[in-house]
Design a protein around this nucleic acid. Structure first.
Lengths: 111, 111
DNA sequence: TTATCATATTGACGAAATTCGATTTGGTAC
DNA sequence: GTACCAAATCGAATTTCGTCAATATGATAA
């Protein structure tokens, strides 16, 4: 259950087009905030907010150096997120659909 | 650009824990709405709303039969979403970070 | 037809997200 | 020290989201 919350935060972060584009930009390597800001029509405070969200869910790491902050992707979080997505979309023995009473008598009888 | 919108809708759909759980439940096969409803503490209208979102982004397909609606995962959408996630997080030649002027003079000079 | 059942839709509400301008923080340069 | 720059934070306006009760739709059963 805690696992769902962990990864749905990542998905929520990727659920905004501008944040997905920021992730894409970072795929080639570390960038400082000002470089990212140049590519988008948004205020500095808005970008900072997006970067905070991306960092909080674990997708991105920030490294402060002097007055700049450099951002890069956390490949480990990405790998685990892909694995989670694969897991919840693949048939498996311990699926939550098999826990407890999931039967709907009406449906079974009338089908 | 249109691609970002297409897949961020999928991520947004996966960004809610209950919807992620619904996807997980469907991973073992088709289920009717009433079966899913039994597993969650939410009203029928709320579930219907979630199912609509999951269908609209392409993750889930609905099949109406009599008075029931059966839902199942769209594996193709899932595969393409995983590929998209891999693409935007992997170093590549045609990355958007290489388009146009992305330089931040100040950063380069002072670093 | 009338009743009933499964699901979808509508309308309303509070909570959360997105955005910006203004300000603050903390580092660098003079 | 002061001035300046990059980034974070704050406060407020607007939009979107998640939720429910009530109602509508549409199929089946009697």
């Amino acid at each position: 259950m805690k696992e769902y919350l962990e990864y749905t935060r990542v998905f929520k972060a990727l659920g905004d087009p501008k944040r997905a584009m920021i992730v894409d930009m970072l795929s080639c390597g570390e960038l400082c905030a000002c470089m990212i800001l140049e590519k988008f029509e948004m205020s500095q405070s808005t970008l900072s907010h997006h970067m905070k969200l991306l960092c909080e869910c674990g997708l991105v790491r920030g490294r402060e150096q002097g007055k700049w902050t450099y951002y890069s992707l956390d490949k480990d979080t990405i790998d685990r997120t892909v694995q989670f997505l694969r897991r919840i979309t693949t048939d498996k023995e311990d699926c939550i659909c098999k826990e407890g009473a999931v039967f709907c008598g009406g449906c079974d009888e009338d089908e």
